[in-house]
Simulated assay, not measured.
Amino acid sequence: MKKIWIVGMLIVSFLAACTGEKTLEQRFVYEDDKIVDVETGDEYILEDVEEFTVVHSDGTVEKIPLDEAPFYTGAFSAEYLDELDKNLEERKLRLIEEKKMKIKEARNARYAELSNDELLAKFKEGHSDGLELGIQMDMIAELIDRGVIAEDEAPVMLEIEPELIDFDINPEAPIM
């Protein structure tokens, strides 16, 4: 009986030792743009290509080199960096799209009081008077949005090469 009890205790302690150790994937999880250590609550944020900003559970912050992160091993780190790059690219595209929509809404508001014919006449007058090219492109973009002219007519009307056209220009923004 004593032997069975000892063998049982060894099995239980062996199982406890095995289940107590978490794999990297279990201990460190992705959350948005950071990796969280589920055991300590520390958050690892990649803000620089060479180091992590670590926000500890007690609120302290430190910077550590990439290779000193506790999860820094080949596949896991590569997967995180790939995921981070993907998220950053998606965010960048979303911000560009939002900016384009704001420019388009502002353009619609700028020319809301003008009819299609009035806007076309205003463009032609401005073009012949040498109005700033950004404002001309802005008017052409509105005319295209309204369906008054086709996009392939824009370079001819502006008298410029097609690759120089930017319909997402904001004529009210300061030029740097």
Rank of each mutant, 00 (worst) to 15 (best):
I96P: 04
I45F: 11
K63D: 11
E47F: 06
F71P: 03
H56G: 00
I103P: 02
K124E: 11
S115V: 09
T73I: 11
S128A: 07
E43I: 10
I103C: 00
G126A: 04
E125Y: 06
E50A: 12
I96A: 15
Y44A: 02
D138I: 02
I45T: 15
E132K: 15
A75G: 05
A69H: 01
G126C: 01
A121R: 13
E105G: 01
A69E: 01
R94P: 03
H127Q: 13
T53F: 04
Y44C: 02
Y111I: 10
K100W: 03
F71N: 03
V61M: 07
S115N: 12
D42N: 11
K122I: 01
F52G: 01
E43G: 02
E43C: 07
G134N: 14
E43L: 04
A112N: 07
E90A: 13
A69L: 01
K124A: 12
L114N: 02
A121S: 13
K102M: 08
E125I: 07
Y80T: 05
M101N: 14
E132Q: 11
Q136A: 07
E47K: 13
K122M: 11
K86V: 04
A69T: 08
D85A: 14
G126K: 03
G130N: 09
L120W: 06
K102Q: 15
E97V: 06
E125T: 09
P65R: 10
K86R: 15
V54Q: 08
D85H: 13
R110Y: 09
G59L: 03
R91I: 02
K99R: 14
F71T: 00
R110F: 10
E97K: 11
K99M: 09
T53C: 05
I135Y: 05
R110C: 05
F123P: 02
V61T: 13
R107H: 07
E79F: 06
S77M: 14
D117Q: 12
A75R: 11
Y72E: 01
N87S: 14
V55L: 15
H56T: 10
E47M: 10
D42I: 01
G130Q: 10
R107N: 06
K104Q: 12
F123Y: 12
A121F: 09
I64Q: 02
L95T: 06
E125C: 00
T73Q: 13
K63C: 07
P65Q: 12
M101I: 09
E118V: 14
N87A: 15
A69Q: 05
F52S: 03
K104E: 08
S57E: 14
D82L: 05
E98Y: 11
K99H: 15
K102E: 14
I96N: 11
D82C: 01
K102V: 01
K122D: 06
Q136N: 13
H56K: 12
L131P: 00
I96H: 15
K122A: 07
P70L: 01
T60I: 04
D67K: 07
E118N: 08
L81M: 12
D85L: 12
G126R: 05
E98M: 14
K99A: 12
K100R: 08
E51H: 11
G134Q: 10
T53G: 02
R110D: 14
E89N: 12
K104L: 10
L46D: 03
K99N: 13
E98C: 08
Y111N: 03
N116W: 03
F71K: 02
L88D: 08
E50C: 09
Y72S: 06
S57C: 05
L88C: 00
I64D: 02
